[in-house]
Computed example of a mutant assay.
Amino acid sequence: MADQTSADSGNKIKDPADWTTGEEPATGAQESYLHTLATEAHEEVPEDLTKADASRMIDELQEKTGRGR
Rank of each mutant, 00 (worst) to 15 (best):
R56I: 12
G28F: 03
S9Q: 10
A41W: 00
T21L: 11
G28H: 11
A52D: 04
P46N: 06
D48S: 13
H35C: 09
E44I: 10
Q62Y: 02
G22H: 11
L34H: 05
E47M: 12
W19V: 09
P25C: 06
L49Y: 06
E63I: 10
S6Q: 02
R67F: 00
A54K: 11
T21M: 11
A2W: 05
A2Y: 11
K51F: 13
D48L: 04
T39G: 09
E60S: 08
N11V: 01
A26H: 02
K14C: 06
R56P: 11
K51A: 14
L37C: 01
N11A: 02
D59T: 14
T5L: 00
G28I: 07
N11T: 01
H42K: 13
A52N: 08
S32N: 05
A41V: 03
R56F: 10
G68M: 12
E24W: 10
D59V: 13
A54T: 09
T21E: 14
S9N: 01
Q30E: 14
E24S: 14
A7Y: 03
G10Y: 11
H42L: 11
G10E: 00
E63T: 15
R69F: 14
A2C: 02
P16A: 06
W19A: 14
L49I: 13
H42N: 15
L61W: 05
S9A: 06
P25Q: 04
I58T: 01
T65N: 08
A38H: 02
E60A: 07
E63Y: 12
G28N: 09
D18A: 14
K14G: 08
Q30L: 06
S9Y: 01
G28Y: 04
D48V: 07
N11K: 03
W19S: 14
S6R: 04
A52S: 15
L37T: 06
S32W: 08
E43C: 07
T27E: 03
E23R: 14
